[in-house]
Design a protein around this nucleic acid. Sequence first.
DNA 1: GTACAACTTCAAGTTAACTTGAGGTCAAGC
DNA 2: GCTTGACCTCAAGTTAACTTGAAGTTGTAC
Lengths: 144, 144
Amino acid sequence: MKLPDIAEVARRSGVPASTLRFYEEKKLIESAGRHGLRRLYDPAVFERLALIALGRASGFSLEEIAQMFSPDGRVRIDRGMLAAKADELDRTIRRMAAMRDGLRHAAVCRAPSHLECPTFRRLLAAAASGAIRAPQSRTRRGRR
Amino acid sequence: MKLPDIAEVARRSGVPASTLRFYEEKKLIESAGRHGLRRLYDPAVFERLALIALGRASGFSLEEIAQMFSPDGRVRIDRGMLAAKADELDRTIRRMAAMRDGLRHAAVCRAPSHLECPTFRRLLAAAASGAIRAPQSRTRRGRR
DNA sequence: GTACAACTTCAAGTTAACTTGAGGTCAAGC
DNA sequence: GCTTGACCTCAAGTTAACTTGAAGTTGTAC
């Protein structure tokens, strides 16, 4: 059984080869060995990549994700950290839901100008008060 | 009635002076005039800043926000754009809610390892499949 | 009228998460 | 055994949204 090379891992995981090398540099993954210069990966790398994708999707930075792995490569996720992140996500979700409702309303509201719409103004006030914070990064995955 | 200067606007809006200058450079706001070299602002700038905060909180980029303002400075938000953004927010919210639930579960799950927890594995699979995308940028607003 | 805190400009730096490019190596197919 | 395409390394570039720093100007208080 031959171990997958970087192209194979990229193909099956959807993660670009350049990103795989980058992740290795950041100690997020490692290659099982080399065939000449070429990296060969243990199939377990797919699970690892899934874990990384999950972490990213949950708002963890790569650095935080790196800390979830023991030096020996085992996964060791702190449950308190998970709960804290869940709470943070929850707060973000609430804010975004308020935003969504406000936008939705503004989109159909027939006030002559959004600035004259009470609902919109309420949103504005909330945003101005700092009750609302930055959203998600739209790292558009377009393949230019 | 004297117009507020940049420090006053910064103080009352919570937006740093450097950011106000940056926003001006990006044509997001403008100063009403100068007193010597110093910028003076029309009080309407506060509403404008609130609108910018709202846009950012809703996931608009500064560039998108700039497009919401007519060349003459009037607000002209495209209702279709609002609705589209609301939809996008909605999708993001759904993903984040799934994440939150998964994390919450993983935090209390008593499986010996997260990798052995069915719920966690389901999340992993979803993340790996790309069903889930990047989250919010934690631009920590700490005042170092 | 002088000191100086607070403003000004402009360029460069910051951060995260990657991508791109130049120049080099090499395993596999013919 | 030679070609070639896919890999390699390492440095630099990219993007967004700002921040920081250096060097200069000036309104305001005394």
